[in-house]
Amino acid sequence: MAQGHDEKEQHPPAASLTVIIHDEDVGGDPVEVKAGPGAPVETIISRFYSAKMTEGKPGDRLVCLGNGQDVFAHASEHLGDYRTTSCHALEWGWSGETGGA
């Protein structure tokens, strides 16, 4: 049947990914952001700040807890690619600016 043929041609919807983001300045329950693998990393970052009801500042840090690497540096990548190549567990830690020397 034509209808069945059409169903075979369609790609199943990509499963959404869940990014767990800890506010490492405050602690407590993390923020969970769900997005498809094609979503840019910067979209997840933006949703995190929306959940915190704040805006990003120049001194902010966001790292992949699995490897300690900067997440902001991967902002333009697709989330699925970023998970495959860099941060497999998608668990991040956010922190604000600090002073010291």
């Binding site: 490492e24 602690g27 604000g96």
Partner: peptide
């Protein structure tokens, strides 16, 4: 904005 979590992390 900060708790001891900030210190330990």
């Amino acid at each position: 904005r900060h708790t001891l979590s900030a210190t330990l992390n």
